[in-house]
Amino acid sequence: MKHEHNKPLHRYGMVIDLDKCTGCGTCVVACASENNVSVRPDESDKKRFISWMQLYMITNGKEYPYTEVCYIPRPCMHCEEDGHGNPHPPCVSVCVATATRVDINTGIVSQIPTRCIGCRYCQAACPYHARYFNWWDAYFPKGKGLERYLSPEVSVRMRGVVEKCTFCHHRYMRAKRKAEAEGRRELKEEEYITACTEACPAGAITFGDLNNPKHKVSQLIKSDRAFRLLERLNTKPKVYYLSSKEWVRRMADNYLPEELKPVKPLALRR
């Protein structure tokens, strides 16, 4: 709390290249299995399912043959500001029981399910729908051995609490543990990456420390193709997207009618 207004030591962030993303959904599956995300017999209820990494599909709305499609994987944005200039995400200041905070060591927005009382105020405050409530008791199909495949590194959530993407924080702890065994305190860039980053077959996801100029993410976010979701709300997400398509970048935010100027194609620098 004392450190809240200080800058975190590291600022882990993610860059997702939408030009590379094929919408295969591997990141979604990898995330769910890595983080013991509960499944339900009927997963088609998209209003109450849990998917820390959610996959959106958008189109440019044009008729064939001009239709274009883009997939947007959406983890927790790990915002840095609440849109009003305060140095915490919109969800953190509203939490009644201090169940969610910005981690001072990593800049990751933490969520502690055993502290959460399930008031859902954070869900109301998050414009990205990145937070999920456990409407049911955790369910892992019985007799199929799925319980045995639960990761001991991530606690299984109980019903009635909110959960969300943690940038696979346990992987950070794992990497730190290994570094300490080798007598180091600092992590190397490749030592800590999230499950979705590792799983993406197209290599569309890059993960690293935004505070470290040598990390690939810090270089990627300077690209002309880089943008964030709902940037106008000023929540300063640490998840960046890359796209060479103007209409995709436009879809990431709301614009007033007078701001909708004709789309200018972006020169690709390769």
């Binding site: 450190h3 030591l9 001072i104 990593t106 502690i112 590194e153 924080h169």
Partner: peptide, 12 residues
């Protein structure tokens, strides 16, 4: 080491 009183230091 007050920085280690950050929730995610001890919670998973």
């Amino acid at each position: 080491h007050e920085e280690f009183n950050s929730c995610f230091t001890c919670h998973k």
